[in-house]
Amino acid sequence: MTIDRLLEGLRQRDPRAIGRAISLVENGDESAEIILSSLDENLVSQATILGITGPPGAGKSTLTNEIIAKLRHQEERIGIIAIDPSSPISGGAILGDRIRMMQHATDKDVVMRSMATRGRLGGLCATAGAAVRIMASCGCSTIIIETVGVGQSEMDIIRLADITILVMAPGLGDEIQAMKAGLLEVADILVVNKADCKGADILAMDLEAVTRKGSATPTQVCMTVATEGKGVTELLDRIDKLDSEHRDSGERQKRRRGAHNQEVLDWCLEILRPQLLDKIIKRKLSVLGDPRLKAKKILEEK
């Protein structure tokens, strides 16, 4: 596909062009810059970006599937970016989130993309951010990013979101883990999914207690049964309400600016890294002495 045909395809919102554009950006192709500067920034700034995170198996994909179904009733065009970890050993990945969302596979207004972390932190954020913009520019008014909430990379992804939803479930034993990872603090909305299972009420109470400690306004917990679509309407109402609050108060704009600055910083570092490494190697530094001091010296010189 030539770049002109690709750009025309994006204007036509052709699924093939959207898929290809995301790949080119993900693969660091030279054409990425042309693609990303051709986007409709107006649509990008209007779209709502939801981050859905939580421990493996909590029901994030199943819940996303239900959210898509509800939003499609309102005739919205939706984008989904589902991120799964790459194997650190082979570099490969199994991207399986689609299994739970196949009912929307042939819906032209559901644009979905699976993405592997490929072992890059800042890079993943930049790639996912670019995919969000491509989808928004192609008319997706809501874009959902699903990621497994365990490590730092997920926290970075969450930065891309206007609203972050943390999905937990009883019986996974990950509550403490989530608190450690600081996910509870970044989450705007807490969901206890699998409310049909034993231990859901207790988990919800525990979570409410933890959030009450930290702030004057405890985060209220939403209960859902994703497999039956229960509680999803209420969750969407919460999301809507919070989204309009954030739009009115300027919180949304503040977050977008912070995320944008961070993305620019990621790119600066990405571009600088090879240049700096080159400089360092050329200097044939001795292995003795303070690395920090040497770093400062290298950065000071023109």
């Binding site: 194997s87 490969g92 399986g96």
Partner: peptide, 18 residues
């Protein structure tokens, strides 16, 4: 996956169109 591929797995009972 073990050979380094990124594999999108769609599961069973899919229509050719899906």
């Amino acid at each position: 996956r073990d050979a380094g591929f990124e594999v999108v797995y769609t599961g069973i009972r899919r229509s050719p169109e899906e």
